[in-house]
Amino acid sequence: MSISLEEVEHVALLARLELGPAEKEAYTQQLNAILGYMEKLNELDTENVEPMAHVLPLANVFREDEVKPGLAPEAALDQAPDKHDNQFRVPKIV
């Protein structure tokens, strides 16, 4: 499998990254190198290997259903580039 320049542009758009022509070219090559390595891994027989859901051999880590105070609104909004009435203000997107 290889990745095209158009696919790199598509993924960049989804990630809201603005890439110049040279960057697009560079990322296309790098992503292809990574996918090439995946091809190498594909040579292994994984027929009887369960897909891994997590790197740690753990399951069922829980917290109890208890309420604790969070941040004061002023603190929560402290780093917001724009705010109004204790709310974050953002450009309208419908």
Binding site: R63, D65, E66, V67, K68, G70, L71, A72, P73, A76, L77, D85, N86, Q87, F88
Partner: peptide, 26 residues
């Protein structure tokens, strides 16, 4: 539930804006 799914903030309906928030849910 009393608290949110991944953090201990309250789930109460109708609170003033951004009073039930913490670093996790933000």
């Amino acid at each position: 539930t009393k608290s949110k799914v991944f953090c201990p903030c309250s789930t109460e309906f109708g609170a003033p804006p951004n009073t039930h928030v913490c670093p996790v849910c933000l």
